[in-house]
């Protein structure tokens, strides 16, 4: 459990809160477009969490200045580049999946005339 409320705990709790908000939207909202927005919030929660994992105290951005390339490079001086690279791909994937989802929503709306989930289920049962 949490002993004290310091900056790092706050950062984890922020990611957890975003995750819960996203999940709540996906489960409880009945409009499909709102579910999609909630899915994006959930993705942001994951991205925030990973970026929080990449930080190091006393370290700078993972771009080695030209002056420092001659000698050995100290790993403690630069933040972890791996989560940055992974989240870069995750952001682009989230944009393209959002595009696919919007296309599907447009198609559903064309076919059934509504995006409200209960109404959609009624239309499907007919």
């Amino acid at each position: 459990m949490i002993d004290s409320l310091d900056a790092s705990t706050v950062q984890y709790l922020q990611a957890a809160a975003l995750l819960l908000v996203g999940l709540y939207g996906i489960i409880a909202r009945s409009h499909l477009l709102r579910k999609l927005m909630a899915m994006n919030i959930l993705q942001v929660a994951v991205i925030v969490f990973f970026i929080a994992l990449s930080t190091k105290f006393g370290a700078t951005v993972p771009v080695v200045p030209a002056a420092a390339t001659a000698g050995p490079i100290d790993p403690a001086a630069y933040v972890n580049p791996l989560p940055h690279a992974l989240m870069l791909t995750a952001i682009v994937v989230s944009v393209s999946t959002t595009g696919v989802a919007l296309a599907l929503l447009i198609r559903i709306r064309r076919r059934f005339g509504t995006l409200n989930e209960p109404a959609l289920l009624d239309r499907l049962r007919e």
Binding site: T69, I73, P75
Partner: peptide, 27 residues
């Protein structure tokens, strides 16, 4: 959240396993 390494900890598992190699030999 209480069991995770502190944010910014240079000794956290994420900062000590693969990434030191990436940073030290990357260039």
């Amino acid at each position: 959240a209480g069991g995770l390494p502190r944010v910014g900890d240079p000794e956290s598992p994420a900062a000590t396993h693969v990434s030191p190699r990436y940073i030290a030999r990357g260039y």
